[in-house]
Design a binder for these strands. Structure first.
Length: 977
RNA sequence: GCGGGCGUGGCGAAAUGGCAGACGCGGCAGGUUUAGGUCCUGUUGGUGGAAACACUGUGGGGGUUCAAAUCCCCCCGCCCGCACCA
């Protein structure tokens, strides 16, 4: 199947060996001539001449982490696509910035280092060198001077600098924008803004506060702040874990250690302050609707109301609801087990007549349910033990009663207060009003342990009739909650009645009433959480933060950046007991944690922050560093930033990277985090656009067969034998699967294999020809020969295979020649397809043209230069090496990289006559060839000369004629008479 | 459960209101070759037919239209994301 050249093959046939020779030659030339170096408008990389801002284009890929196993053929799909586009756009006169880099900090790199027993700095450097080599072998046109690594101190110095911008900023609630903390302090000092903060209960005036309290108040406003948060804590690994790193049964993916929920003091970034803008600004972006939807869902805006319920003396419980209209149906309250008021609300004794189910007796037995305190304690303990995922997997609802009651403010009804794990402490207020008749979860709990149900929205007749035995007034008979909109019933109280209103009217009326009575207010909440930003890990950016004797954080001055990651031989996270506080690896680095610094008031001792930043930090801004990678004065020169990030093209484009290609797996992590950082930088005046990525394109994945043995483990797909009884490995029958190519499914295919059999140009072209760029596609090695043959035929049409000489040149084609016309039609179509990233169809058109060219060359034993040059130029963005070689052999001394993409001759495309189908009652009956300008009568006259048409029309009457010029003639007939 | 997307030959796919299946793989037939491979030519959705041709055909059903793979409604299947979000 491989086309290893055999002895009698022509010496100069385009085969794997010749392809390799050509590819290495041109890669060498590109490197020596700096072909891919893109100039800047200013600074170190400034161009000799001025650059046209209207012609700039910033095209980039999501950068990879430097993996130890190198690339497989699935990785470069997006890289090839961006490269083809970058090369094409350069040929259309654009100044194209096409950089590449490595996401070198973070867990994948550190895990690889631990597994191989080496230092991550060593493995990272090795892996980067290896990947750089593999990418160069593919002929990607990245500017080598702009390559960055997030683990390079020259890079992470500025990651730390941006963290300081976050630390030194707060979000002004009046404008929703970030401002310097110094503004906030000024407003506190002048008394124009009250120092409202949890750190200042009672909101005493600024001048009454001591220094430490003032610092606590300011800290509580910062965009980067310390907070106690419940996290996934894994003592076995000695670190917190992201939700994604915890398995369904609550254990660590790595090492299979148990994971606990635990409150820990962590750095948080206040991304929630940007929720509204992150949502609203999606509208102006050229992203797919599905990706925007994912971000919208993740941000999860919901509109409703806060309502305060009185519970005994002085206690007040605030809930959030999106259905304030159902307030009369709220028959009990449910708090998250972690809610701060739980302890205060837990009664000493059960009220008279409390049912056993409310006491948690079925869950914990008689002893634990003897008093509210023991039952609540048992329930809290149970919640802490169970992971989030496990909780959600449980089918039945559970809850225990606190022994306390609240009062429904509209109906006056007495509402038992319960705790249950289906109420989440992190969403809304961590407490809900339960409306069991109209909320499915509340319904399940109410029917499970016997709580009252009141219908306040009347279900429709149809809804009731679909549920046998359902009585409109008895929700318990419904089998499930009725949560649709409807007409309010049973909703009359002392101060307010909602009866007869629709859902929307009822919401408005009850919210107005709550606001007037001071019992509640309209409110919007988000699912988006603040971003937990610290890790007890070694391989990441150190925080530019120290603590003084107060234990409060102090930002280091810019002049002390970077805070270098200290070298450590044992950098692994350390296991600690369940009750011990975790120690970040950096606390063990000699001389790192305790330091003497002069921060402006003389040398003093400080303690450094020893956590590191998470994997996402560097990727939040790396695209900006490409613009100005060696600048040691600023993270990016403003003139350079403005040039590359400005919106080009249609009016109203917000600007940012002009084309960003990457996988959809980053839809809500990297892409949301980066948008947030960018907006902060924008607010503070450091960047010129409100969004980082104008156009985002998700390439599909390459899929391949994968196989599992009888014990369910994946086996290397390349070593699987196909037998008549199915796939086999080491004598064992296998189960066939199908999935994303990669290490985990053991079905990777190395690009080296393809280079060996066909060359890099064939691989590039094959990956682009497989199908639409955004769709997953199977790796089908048998198909590769299709594009291989195309390149081979193109080569043969220009070069004598026996001698290696240029073929004879045919006479100049007249513009009336069909091949000339086809060439220009192809150029015109291919141009459009390249513009739209539809490389698969562009390649199909080019193959068609080449097939026609092949016939010509065989007939004439000579090639027409116009056709060949157009085809070579169109091939260049895809198969750059062989196109460069052919261009040179065609006698050109100029670099093909600088040649303009061919432009179609409009006269050649315009046909004097057109051939269109004729249909009778929608059925095709033949074609007619008519003048381009022909009108309906001309077309009819031509159609009636067709035997097929004339015979039918003779028998039937013409009811109607539809003539679409250039498209179709449809004759609608009816029976005569 | 909610949200997004997809469904076309043996396979990857074209056609986004106007002759369904461009282009490629694979298959079949022929040429070149000692043979195989390479290379070249022809052919290839299905059914019927020697052929011309006819009928049929884009997951299923219905609708809009002169005309539907394409637009609308219902159903089925598959993929992806989120998921006790109040």
């Amino acid at each position: 199947m491989n086309s290893e050249p055999s002895a009698d093959d022509a010496k100069f046939r385009y085969g794997a060996a010749l392809a390799e020779q050509i590819e290495l030659k041109w890669q060498q030339i590109w490197s020596e001539q700096g072909t891919f170096e893109t100039p800047n408008p200013a600074g170190d990389l400034a161009a000799a001449s001025t650059l046209d801002p209207a012609r700039k284009l910033f095209v980039m890929d999501m950068f990879p982490y430097p993996s130890g196993s190198g690339l497989h053929v699935g990785h470069p799909l997006g890289y090839i696509a961006s490269d083809v586009y970058a090369r094409y756009m350069r040929m259309t006169g654009h100044v194209v910035l096409h950089p590449f880099g490595f996401d070198a900090f973070g867990l994948p790199a550190e895990q690889y280092a631990i597994e191989t027993g080496q230092h991550p700095a060593v493995t990272t450097a090795q892996n980067i060198a290896n990947m750089r080599r593999q990418l160069r072998r593919l002929g990607l046109s990245h500017d080598p001077r702009r390559e960055i690594s997030t683990a390079d101190p020259k890079f992470y110095r500025w990651t730390q600098w941006i963290f300081l911008q976050l630390f030194n900023s707060w979000c002004d609630p009046d404008t929703g924008r970030a401002r310097p903390v110094s503004d906030l302090v000024a407003e506190f000092e002048q008394g124009t803004r009250p120092p409202v903060s949890e750190a200042n209960p009672g909101t005493r005036a600024w001048r009454e506060l001591d220094d430490v309290t003032r610092r606590r108040v300011i800290d509580s406003y910062r965009l980067a702040f310390l907070s106690e948060a419940p996290v996934n804590w894994c003592p076995g690994l000695g670190t917190v874990l992201a939700n994604e790193e915890v398995t369904a049964d609550g254990r660590s993916q790595v090492g299979n250690y148990p994971v606990y929920r635990r409150r820990m003091k962590q750095w948080m970034l206040r991304i929630t302050a940007y929720a509204d803008r992150l949502l609203a600004d999606l509208d102006g972006l050229d992203w797919t609707e599905s990706l925007k939807t994912m971000q919208r869902n993740w941000i999860g805006r919901s509109v409703g109301a806060d309502i305060r319920f009185q519970a005994g003396e002085g206690s007040e419980i605030q809930v959030f609801t999106t259905r304030p209209d159902t307030l009369f149906g709220a028959t009990f309250l449910v708090l998250a087990p972690e809610h701060p008021l739980v302890a205060a609300l837990t009664a000493d004794e059960w009220p008279e007549g409390t049912p056993g189910e409310w006491k948690g007796a079925p869950l914990f037995g008689d002893e634990a349910s003897a008093s509210p305190r023991s039952a609540v304690a048992a329930y809290i303990e149970r919640t802490a033990r169970v992971s989030d995922r496990q909780r959600q997997a449980e089918t039945a609802k559970s809850a225990v009663f606190t022994g306390s009651y609240a009062v429904n403010p509209v109906s006056g009804a007495k509402m038992p207060i319960l705790i249950s794990d289906y109420v989440l402490v992190g969403y809304g207020t961590g407490a809900i009003m339960a409306v069991p008749a109209h909320d499915q979860r509340d319904y399940e709990l109410a029917t499970e342990i016997g709580l009252p149900l009141v219908a306040v929205v009347r279900p429709g007749e149809q809804w009731l009739s679909e549920r046998p035995g359902a009585d409109a007034d008895e929700p318990a008979t419904w089998g499930e909650a009725f949560h649709a909109d409807g007409t309010l019933v049973n909703s009359r109280g002392d101060g307010i009645s909602l009866n007869g209103l629709g859902t929307d009217d009822a919401k408005n009326r009850v919210v107005r009433w709550l606001e007037d009575s001071g019992l509640g207010a309209r409110r919007i909440t988000y699912k988006l959480r603040d971003w937990l930003f610290s890790r007890q890990r070694y391989w990441g950016e150190p925080f530019p933060i120290v603590y003084d004797e107060t234990g409060l954080p102090i930002a280091l001055p810019e002049s002390q950046l970077p805070v270098a990651l200290p070298p450590m031989s044992d950098f692994r996270p350390q296991a600690v007991g369940e009750d011990e506080d975790p120690k970040a690896p950096l606390s063990r680095a000699p001389g790192f944690e305790v330091v003497e610094l002069d921060l402006g008031d003389g040398p003093r001792q400080y303690r450094r922050e020893t956590n590191t930043m998470p994997q996402w930090a560097g990727s939040c801004w790396y695209y900006l560093r490409y613009l100005d990678p060696d600048n040691d004065q600023r993270f990016v020169d403003p003139a350079v930033e403005e040039f590359w990030m400005a919106g080009v093209g249609e009016a109203g484009r917000v600007g940012g990277v002009d084309l960003y290609i990457g996988g959809v797996e980053h839809a809500v992590l990297h892409l949301l985090y980066a948008r947030f950082w960018h907006k902060v930088l924008y607010d503070l005046g450091h960047v010129s656009t409100p969004e980082p990525f104008q156009r985002l394109y998700n390439q599909g994945y390459i899929l391949a067969d994968a196989f599992t043995n009888p014990s369910g483990r994946y086996v290397p797909a390349t070593e699987v034998e196909e037998t008549p009884d199915g796939p086999c490995y080491q004598g064992e029958p296998l189960k066939r699967h199908y999935g994303k190519m990669g290490k985990s499914l053991k079905n990777s295919i190395s690009p080296d294999e393809i280079y060996q059999s066909y060359g890099a140009d064939t691989l590039r072209m094959y990956e682009m020809a497989m199908g639409p760029l955004d769709v997953d596609r199977p790796w089908q090695p048998d198909d590769i020969v299709g594009v291989y043959r195309f390149l081979q035929r193109l080569w043969r049409n220009v070069i004598e295979e026996e001698s290696g000489d240029l073929r004879a040149e045919a006479k100049h084609l007249p513009s009336s020649d069909p091949l000339y016309k086809l060439t220009h039609r192809t150029v015109s179509e291919v141009t459009g397809y390249f513009d739209d990233l539809r490389f698969n169809v562009a390649i199909a058109r080019m193959i068609e043209l080449n097939n026609a060219l092949t016939q010509f060359v065989q007939r004439e034993d000579a090639f027409p230069r116009q056709v060949v040059e157009a085809l070579v130029l169109m091939t260049f963005p895809l198969a750059s090496h062989v196109a460069s070689e052919l261009w040179e052999r065609l006698g050109h001394r100029d670099r093909i990289d600088d040649v303009a993409f061919p432009v179609a001759d409009p006269d050649a495309i315009r046909e004097e006559t057109v051939t269109i189908p004729v249909t009778l009652d929608g059925k095709p009956r033949g074609t007619i060839t008519i003048d381009r300008e022909a009108v309906q009568d001309d077309a009819m006259a031509a159609a009636l000369r067709l035997e097929n048409v004339a015979s039918v029309v003779a028998d039937r009457a013409i009811a109607r004629v539809v003539f679409v010029p250039g498209k179709i003639l449809n004759i609608v007939t009816k029976a005569r008479g």
